[in-house]
């Protein structure tokens, strides 16, 4: 089953949100517009509770630790008036005992309406969506290296707020593309929204095979990759990458790929700097940039709530038909 067939129901509405890949442009625009309404942009504060998910139960199913994503999903569900339950499941102990399907069946028996899933294996959310009862929606909160679609949407939301028109932009995604679900989802979202120039920047060891087929240009040199870009998306560098012989050291990484004010000078003057968090100061990004005027990192976090409300509301909408 293609990702699109799985996600869009027979009425053309969003049933699951597993990956951005293959979704129609208008649907992404709908999510952004919806989120804008929830963000209460006039006052710059989030709206109070709305009753869109009243009586519904949302289960956050986290097989991998997360703070930001889990809490913003919780807040989003709360503000939509849903009942929320967050379960942190240690994937390794889950493996020993109950199978993933058994866990799902048990939760289904508790009459829930929506799963938000984060899992360390690529394809986990897809797997769950193909196996849950038809009335349940599955939202991917990040699966392995595959996808993190709500992150991509909140990044697109943040970009739209600052840049307005996607069709004029150059966007550089910098760092560990190989292991990054954020990079993959961002590439799909930006492509669908019409960004003509998407670049990935990093050492050969962190660029996955065939990434160009997703519609990006590959740069190994940071300065060349940043030249004249409107948006820089920095990725977190996991410390364990040093162990896999992918990089010599975090200090060398910073020397070659760390984002500093100096390096940023080749970008457009009104460039914005983004990061999905949590940031490693002095590894992939200098504090002066992270806390500087061009950084929109904290805005990303607050937009996360509005965007996740929008996605949940759209999925819940498909259930009522």
């Amino acid at each position: 089953m293609t990702a699109r067939d799985l996600q869009i129901n027979e009425h053309g509405r969003l049933q699951h949100f597993i990956t951005v890949e293959g979704l129609p442009r208008q649907l992404l625009i709908d999510i952004l517009d919806r989120a804008e309404g929830f963000a209460g942009l006039g006052g710059g504060r989030a709206v109070k509770k709305v009753p869109l998910l009243r009586g519904k139960t949302v289960i956050n199913l986290f097989f991998e630790p997360s703070t930001r994503t889990r809490t913003t999903f919780e807040l989003a569900a709360n503000r939509l008036s849903a009942d929320v339950l967050s379960l942190n499941i240690d994937a390794s102990s889950a493996k020993k005992g109950e199978s993933l399907l058994d866990t799902l069946r048990n939760l289904e028996a508790m009459h829930c309406d929506m799963f938000v899933v984060r899992h360390n294996l690529s394809g986990a959310a897809h797997f769950i969506a193909t196996h849950v009862s038809p009335h349940i929606s599955v939202i991917n909160g990040g699966d392995g290296r595959h996808a993190h679609p709500t992150q991509a949407m909140l990044d697109a939301f943040t970009i739209r707020q600052h840049k307005h028109d996607f069709r004029m932009l150059s966007v550089a995604i910098v760092g560990d593309i190989l292991h990054s679900r954020v990079a993959r989802s961002n590439i799909h979202a930006l492509r669908i929204l019409g960004v003509p120039d998407i670049r990935v920047v990093g050492p050969h060891t962190l660029i996955p095979a065939g990434i160009e087929t997703l519609g990006v240009r590959v740069f190994q040199d940071l300065e060349a990759g940043l030249r004249d870009v409107d948006v820089v998306i920095m990725l977190r560098l996991q410390q364990e990458r040093m162990r896999g012989a992918l990089l010599p050291s975090s200090s060398e990484y910073f020397r070659l790929y760390g984002l500093t004010e100096q390096r940023l000078r080749v970008a457009k003057p009104d460039v914005i700097v983004m990061h999905p968090g949590p940031i490693n100061r002095g590894v992939e990004i200098d504090s002066a940039v992270a806390d500087g005027s061009r950084s929109v990192i904290l805005q990303q976090v607050s937009h996360g709530i509005a965007v996740r409300m929008a996605v949940m509301a759209l999925c819940a909408g498909s259930q009522t038909e």
Partner: peptide, 9 residues
């Protein structure tokens, strides 16, 4: 290859 990259496997 391109497929493994796309799927994140």
């Amino acid at each position: 290859g391109a497929t493994s990259t796309r799927m994140g496997l």
